[in-house]
Amino acid sequence: MRLESKLTCPACGFEAVETMPLDACQFFYLCKGCGKKLKPKAGDCCVFCSYGTVPCPPVQRDGKSACCS
């Protein structure tokens, strides 16, 4: 299981490598470049699944349909 993901802000393109929580989804993330509050895209459970290079641990472990259920 990979615990780090590089988030890319859709507003400014800023990239940051972040450590993901093991047992929860992260619903919000403040961009360290422009300060925009990122929220998951429709159908995604968290910001890592929407804007990251690696999906969150629950999705890695159980698949997208089991996340945050």
Rank of each mutant, 00 (worst) to 15 (best):
M1D: 06
L3T: 12
L3A: 09
E4R: 11
S5Y: 04
S5C: 06
S5N: 01
K6D: 10
K6G: 05
K6F: 08
K6Y: 06
T8V: 13
T8I: 13
P10Q: 04
P10K: 09
C12F: 01
C12M: 02
C12P: 01
G13D: 01
F14W: 14
F14N: 13
F14S: 11
E15F: 03
E15C: 05
A16F: 07
T19H: 13
T19W: 09
M20D: 08
P21A: 13
P21I: 04
P21G: 07
L22W: 09
D23G: 13
C25F: 06
C25E: 06
Q26D: 13
Q26Y: 09
Q26C: 12
Q26L: 15
F27W: 14
F28M: 15
Y29R: 06
Y29G: 01
Y29M: 06
L30Q: 15
L30S: 14
C31I: 05
C31M: 01
G33K: 00
G33C: 01
G35F: 02
G35V: 02
G35K: 01
L38Y: 02
K39H: 14
K39C: 07
P40W: 12
K41T: 11
K41F: 03
A42Q: 12
G43Q: 01
G43M: 03
G43W: 01
G43I: 00
G43C: 01
G43Y: 00
D44Y: 11
C45F: 14
C45A: 15
C45R: 10
C45Q: 08
C46Y: 03
V47M: 05
S50W: 01
S50L: 00
S50H: 02
S50M: 03
Y51S: 07
Y51L: 08
G52A: 07
G52R: 06
G52M: 10
G52W: 06
T53M: 12
T53D: 14
P55R: 05
P55T: 02
P55Y: 06
C56W: 13
C56R: 10
P57F: 11
P57G: 08
V59S: 07
V59F: 13
V59I: 14
V59G: 03
V59W: 10
Q60R: 08
Q60E: 05
G63Q: 04
K64R: 15
K64G: 08
S65F: 08
S65T: 15
A66D: 08
A66G: 00
A66V: 13
C67S: 12
C67W: 07
C68L: 11
S69A: 12
S69T: 14
S69V: 14
S69F: 09
